[in-house]
Amino acid sequence: MIQINELTKIYKLTKKQMIEQKTKKDLKRAVDNLSLVAKPGEIYGLLGPNGAGKTTALRCIATLLKPTEGNIVVSGFDTVKESEKVRKKIGFLTNEIKLDPQFSPKYMFEFFGKLHKVDDKLIEERREKLFSYFEITDFQDKKIEELSTGMKQKASIAVSLVHDPEVIIFDEPTNGLDIVTARNVTDYLKLLKEQGKTVIISTHIMTEAEKLCDKIGIIINGSKVSEGSLEEILNRTGTRDLEDAFFELYKIHNKEEE
């Protein structure tokens, strides 16, 4: 279970970042008063354009960033006060966090298993299961730097699940993957959901959100502008698919911001 209560995250921009982002304000409100609840046995999808604040929100859940305001509770633990306990419960995947390229997927799996204090036998068992599901077994001893993007991503996913976490946070999990591998990943997420895990993902791929997510939260400029099941969102916006719904919302809310 993930509970985000009125989360606001403000970054202080350096002069260089201000020039890059063409702004005169030195503060950037990446996430603005965001509240949501993701329940076990459910896939929650954060949908939004690039820079909407999806990754920031997920990093706050994963304890890597501290909320400027508000708080987040994961499996009953506060992400700031009990960050270590939170990290025990979560599996986090994001593009910017990578596995050491000099090691093999097998070594990394075992290393992180040990850091999570999983015992050796269990590590072995899980490795066999996950590596065969994601078809990593054949290249498990190759150095990660020698692997293709898809293979790397699959290895990262497997490693993030080494401790069988009850909360899964995947930031754009199918980014850069071919359709076969992407399908492989989304199927596994469904499997995790069926096992009663709490799954939260971020994506900007509408079809993925449509097919995969039980609940969708649309984020524009750091604020949640709509939330509900696919049906609820379509009804609310009077549209036929998620892409149309998104653009309806985008028209209204992006203007407000300007």
């Binding site: 994963a62 304890t63 890597l64 270590e84 306990k85 990290r87 025990k88 979560i90 986090f92 910017e96 966090i97 990578k98 596995l99 050491d100 390229p101 992180f112 850091l115 999570h116 204090k117 490693v159």
Partner: peptide
């Protein structure tokens, strides 16, 4: 390389 963050995610 973004590899230290994966360690920061460990409990």
């Amino acid at each position: 390389r973004g590899t230290i963050a994966s360690m920061l995610l460990s409990p």
